[in-house]
Each structure stands twice: as structure tokens, then as C-alpha cells.
Simulated assay, not measured.
Amino acid sequence: MPDNFPTLEFPASIVDLKHPLDNFRAALAGTGPVRIVAMGSSSTAGLDNVVAYPARLELYLRKHFKEHDQRPNIRIDVFNRGKGGEEANLEVPRFNDDIFADNPSLVLWQVGTNAVFRQKEFNFNEVVRKIAEGLKLLRDHPTIDVVLIDPQYTTAMQYDDNAELAEKMVSAIRAAAQDAEVNLFQRWALMRHWHVYNKASFEQLVAPDDGLLLHQSDWNTMHVARALRSALLKATGATQKCGCLITTADNAPAAPPAPVGQS
């Protein structure tokens, strides 16, 4: 992987969440463990040589509330419920055992990648329906906040057979989040911004030992986790006590949508 990593921007228009995280904020104000469940596929589960984003997020949040916003009575646990190769239609049936049983105050649900990358194995419309069904189940829970996470912008998602479907999936996920009035963390747009505006190469964005050219590199995952920490903290009403709130103003424009079929 090239060593000349670019400086990355974190435009507020991409990173910031639209809705407050009231349940998560209440849990942070209490005592005892604060539980987050990360549901998803392989980019949640992690690879051998990449520290998965849930582990990084747990570390970053614990550090923030230990060093910068000291809350000695809480402990943040991020439970990783990622399973490689799955999609929403396989994940929703796991909600009872892998989400609700742990009584989290926040659920991070990463969806959409395998419906594109493994499109012969999954029915696109069924996956979209299951995303909507899963969001309703999560949103109807009185003590859970939800953040939906869309696909990663990597080489494999730009192949000719995948590019158009990937844009379609990103749009469908955005619409599902809007309809359910839940937060969307725009991983696709953020990584695309880094590639288009900040000149981060796909060699830098993709794990170097991933023959599929699908999964994020450790460097990429680290910065996505930092952006997600910033988004979560701001949505709980955090103020700038440290460098944890990294989003920039909108003077760093978001990359425009790609024409259909182009990356």
C-alpha cells in the first residue's frame, strides 16, 4: 500500500447525523454498562489483518469518556454481531438473540454490500424490504436508537456488474432511513469523498491482502470509526472538549453523485 496517505476531510454534510440519539444519551448519563450492538456482515465482523470498526469504536468512546468527558460510572461495550456474507434477510431473524437480548441503547446496522457484491445470491428487492422491516422492529423498541450504515466504496463495488446496483442500493438505504426516521451514517459518500476530493487511492482504501478488493483497509477503517465516533458524540449533544469531534464545516463540499454505471 502506498505510504503517502492523504489528509482526509470529514464534511459535516456527510458525517453528521440528522436525529438526536436520546436513548444512547440517557444511557451515557446513567450508571453501569452502556451497550451498543453492531449488526452487519464482514466489514462489521472484521478481517484477520484489519481491526474491525466496532472494536475501534469501543476503544475510541471509552477513551473519550475516560479522558475528556469523565464519567467514571459507565462502561461502554460494543458487541460485534457481524457475520460475513450475510444480508438484511438473514440478519433480521437474528435480532431477538443478537440485539434485543442484550438490551442495547444503540444499534449500528450495516447493510447493503452483499446484495450488490453477491447479487446472484440475494434478491435486491427482498433485501430492501427486509431493511424496512428491520428498521421498524428497531424503531418500535422504546429504549433503542438506530444508526443505519450503508456500503463501503471500494474497488469491487465499482465493477461494471456492481456499480449501477451499488448506487441503487445506496439510494434505497437512504430512502429506508428517511421513511423510518432513523439516522444514516453515509459510509459510501464519505469514502467516495476521500477518493474523489482527497485523492485517496483504492490501494489505500482497500485491504492489501483482500483478493476480493471488497474490504476496507485498516487505515480506512480507522478513519471511518473516528468519523462514526464524532457523529455519535455530536448526536448526543457533546461539545468540543477534545479532538474527537472531527467533522468539518460544509466548506469542504461533498463529492457529487456518480453518473449511473460510473465510479
Rank of each mutant, 00 (worst) to 15 (best):
L138C: 09
N80V: 00
H195Y: 15
Q119A: 09
Q262P: 02
I149A: 00
V196Y: 04
H141F: 07
D150A: 10
Q262C: 05
S263E: 07
L214P: 03
G112H: 04
V107E: 04
I99W: 07
V128P: 03
V147G: 00
Q186T: 00
D69V: 11
V34T: 12
N96D: 14
R226Q: 12
V116G: 08
Q158A: 10
S263M: 07
E181P: 01
L148Q: 00
A163E: 12
Q262S: 14
V224P: 02
Q152N: 13
G40P: 01
D209M: 13
Q158T: 12
S42M: 02
A156K: 13
R192M: 03
S41P: 05
L232H: 00
D210G: 11
P11I: 05
A163G: 05
D145V: 12
P20H: 13
E67T: 12
D179M: 08
S42N: 05
F79T: 09
A254P: 05
Q216W: 06
L135F: 02
A101K: 15
P142E: 12
G82S: 03
H193R: 02
G82Q: 01
D145A: 11
I14P: 01
G243T: 13
L17S: 11
R187A: 01
F117R: 10
N103S: 14
L213T: 08
G85H: 02
K136T: 09
L106P: 00
D97I: 05
E126R: 14
K120M: 12
T221S: 15
I246L: 15
D98I: 11
D16S: 10
A55L: 13
V260Y: 10
G237R: 07
N49R: 13
V116M: 09
H223S: 00
E167Q: 13
K63M: 11
L135P: 04
D98Q: 12
F124N: 07
A180N: 02
Y53K: 04
L8T: 03
T247M: 13
K199R: 14
F124E: 09
P151W: 01
A189G: 06
K234D: 05
P142V: 07
R129H: 10
N103M: 07
Y153I: 09
L212E: 08
A26E: 12
W219A: 00
L17Y: 09
F122G: 00
V127K: 01
L148G: 01
P151F: 01
A252G: 04
E9G: 15
D145M: 07
S41D: 13
T44N: 06
T247D: 13
A207L: 08
P54F: 01
D161T: 13
M191F: 08
N23Y: 01
R129Y: 05
V116E: 08
G82E: 02
A132V: 06
N125H: 04
A238T: 10
Q119K: 10
V15D: 09
L8I: 04
Q240L: 11
R62K: 11
M222Q: 12
D48P: 07
A163N: 14
A225N: 06
A200D: 07
P72C: 00
K130H: 10
C242R: 06
T236V: 15
H215S: 05
V206C: 09
A156T: 11
E164T: 15
K168L: 14
H223P: 01
L212Q: 10
Q240G: 03
A52H: 12
T247E: 14
R81S: 11
H141L: 08
P256C: 05
V182M: 06
A163M: 14
